[in-house]
Design a protein around this nucleic acid. Structure first.
Lengths: 336, 336
DNA sequence: TTGAAAGCGCTACCAT
DNA sequence: ATGGTAGCGCTTTCAA
């Protein structure tokens, strides 16, 4: 298997212990020796073997990324990208686990063998049961949650404030005179697994209530598939008193809906105002008024927290709220 | 570090060798003993330690995924997702490496230490130099390319036929009477790194030439940033004789462009026809006529090839062309 | 089919 | 600051 630490030690004229040190705790090695070792290593194309160092040190240098969604989604892939941009250089791999229903989730958490092969686990966008999380308390393996209901069982939670963001939307809409506001979202029966759906839905109604008694909120459900725009549009078009604004659970509902409306001759925002959520792909180019959040940056933030957790072994129970804010663009009009 | 293979062996009343075998080559263990071992393992929450088994077997169970783009892009994230859906269950991790320019690429390939810590490397969407690839020939580490110019240095290449797909577009357009056709793409100076840009550009002109002498192709460059739709639109609107159709290097140019055009009062496809490439996010919902390809399935196909390569150690030099085809939807009209 | 045992390449402890 | 060395948990050869 090519060169080993032994070869480098020989060539540099030092012990293997010294070679190991120059790569793991360089400050414990004289600059001169360090230089010799580095030189020898370079000449031999040597790097520390991950498996050997993991085995010996008892750390796997591996993060389990557990998602209830799809890796290729805008959200998950950005989280992953942000995570990797920091973790990769710190020597960590990210192992991707997907669960698509509660039984798979249960299986993941009951099979605690993960603990043997990961230094931390990260739960992305879905909710887990208290007892599932509790299994981790016994170990010192950090359990982090991104975009999950921040339970105290998590070592750290990284979230945005969905409720506050919804309130920002409703306040803005109310200020422009909107009273008849619809909320477009996936039928919760289709998606009781993801977390932020609930958070946003509740946030919407709560915001309507708290902002003004004059607001009449309604709800429109659409399927998750490619008919969602058609479905939403026809429901909206048929409503006895058409709302003046539609708030969408995310941009993925808003963008095709706007398209569909335009295709049917409606003008946005003249005929109806539309608000998205996420500020994801195309939102900026299309001029969508939406709530901005930055999952890539959240991934980076999570990586930093993780690294700290892993080096200091501090058992915190922190909740880090990342920024989210309304971006006003061109899809909302004043009610005349 | 919890239970080890020794504990399981003791509890099952067998040797550690037998425990190891039941997990790696189960067919070499009597069903009865196997059952005993599995039972003991389950009771103890035991799994094989990745690092120990890697160290001993000399295989890292790790794939280096090297991309010149962004992990969160539609293409890369789908490739990754497809890859992981098969590789994860086969016990492989995917380590994400990103390079954003030629010097980083050089660094990756000159630092051959990857070989120590990955069982294979996968180059995604960009071109590498012959000598960079040659470094791998000496080792038995497979070097695969997805969406790269299929060089013979690759152990296997997985691609779509960009040229053929372009021809499909042009033939379709020609049949509907289009003669004045524009190609919208990123300025190649901005992006000489990614591969398929060139392949599609060349494919476009070649297809125009071969399909009909009456076709007048033109080219429109747009920046990569969020102004691309504006930029493309104003160039198109100002052209002395406006093209009847615009072929876009990918959907990411087509979708905002269509939006922009509609916003300015143009109707698609009545005022101008637009064709995309990729069949990516929103293409179906928006009714975009485009070339379909399925990177998630390509990821799966690559994983299968890889697994075979890794188990049989066959040094092939295969080129697998994955399907791509034109999907006719609603953004192309007949020329009157 | 199963067991004994060597040793993969490191890290970390203890000496010097 | 550096070296010697035990041993991390497994896989795999060899023998029984």
């Amino acid at each position: 298997m090519g060169v080993s630490i032994r070869d480098v030690a020989k060539r540099a004229g030092v012990s293997i212990a010294t070679v190991s040190r120059t790569f793991t705790i360089p400050q414990k090695v004289t600059p001169l020796t360090r230089k010799k070792v580095i030189k020898a290593a370079k000449e031999l194309d040597f790097t520390i073997s991950r498996s050997a160092s993991s085995l010996k040190s008892g750390r796997s240098f591996r993060l389990a990324f557990l998602t209830g969604g799809e890796i290729e989604s805008w959200y998950d892939s950005n989280i992953l990208s942000g995570l990797n941009s920091i973790l990769h250089d710190a020597g960590y791999d990210i192992a991707l686990y997907t669960v698509s229903d509660i039984s798979q989730r249960k299986a993941f958490f009951s099979d605690m063998s993960i603990k043997r092969n990961a230094d931390a686990v990260l739960v992305v966008s879905f909710q887990i049961a208290k007892d599932e999380a509790e299994g981790f308390k016994a170990t010192k393996i950090p359990l982090l949650g991104i975009n999950t209901d921040p339970m105290e069982e998590f070592t750290a939670s990284i979230v945005i404030d969905n409720a506050k963001s919804m309130k920002l939307i409703i306040e803005y809409l109310a200020k422009l005179g909107h009273k008849n506001i619809a909320y477009l979202c996936v039928d919760p029966d289709l998606e009781n697994f993801r977390w932020n759906g609930k958070a946003r839905l509740n946030g919407f109604f709560e915001a309507c209530r708290s902002v003004s008694a004059e607001i009449h909120p309604t709800i429109v459900y659409a399927p998750k598939d490619h008919n969602r725009a058609d479905s939403a549009f026809s429901q909206l078009a048929c409503m006895p008193n058409k709302p003046t604004a539609v708030v969408c659970m995310n941009d993925e509902y808003a963008i095709p809906l706007i398209f569909r409306m335009q295709q049917s001759g409606w003008s946005i925002p003249e005929d109806i105002s539309v608000v998205g959520f996420d500020d994801s792909t195309y939102a900026q180019e299309i001029g969508l008024t939406t709530v901005h959040q930055d999952p890539k940056e959240m991934g980076r933030a999570t990586a930093r927290i993780l690294l700290k957790l892993l080096s200091e072994a501090t058992i915190t129970n922190s909740v880090q709220v990342e920024p989210s804010f309304l971006i006003v663009r061109n899809t909302v009009a004043q009610v005349l």
